[in-house]
């Protein structure tokens, strides 16, 4: 079992913009949106769960429309 966090987005434009903004600051990985969140756009960003607070702050600063979820696999 490993835990990680994902940011889900309403649109792929938001996801692509978030990847560009965050990838130089945080170790984020683009991934397909996990199937159970299929209501969101198909591109999600994965990051380490230890960086949730930092990521939330960055999402707010850059006005990114994303929702953070915790994942286990």
């Amino acid at each position: 079992m490993s835990r990680y966090a994902v940011i889900l987005f309403k649109s792929s434009h938001d996801a692509i913009r978030a990847d560009k903004l965050l990838r130089d600051i945080l170790p984020v990985t683009l991934m397909p949106t996990p199937r159970r969140f299929s209501a969101s756009c198909g591109i999600a960003l994965r990051f380490d769960e230890s960086q949730i607070a930092e990521t939330e702050e960055l999402i707010r600063q850059h006005k990114l429309r994303g929702t953070i979820k915790l994942m286990e696999d």
Partner: peptide, 13 residues
Amino acid sequence: ELGSSLIKIFFYA
């Protein structure tokens, strides 16, 4: 940009 994101998530999957 979209094509580049798609290839990243392709290799992730």
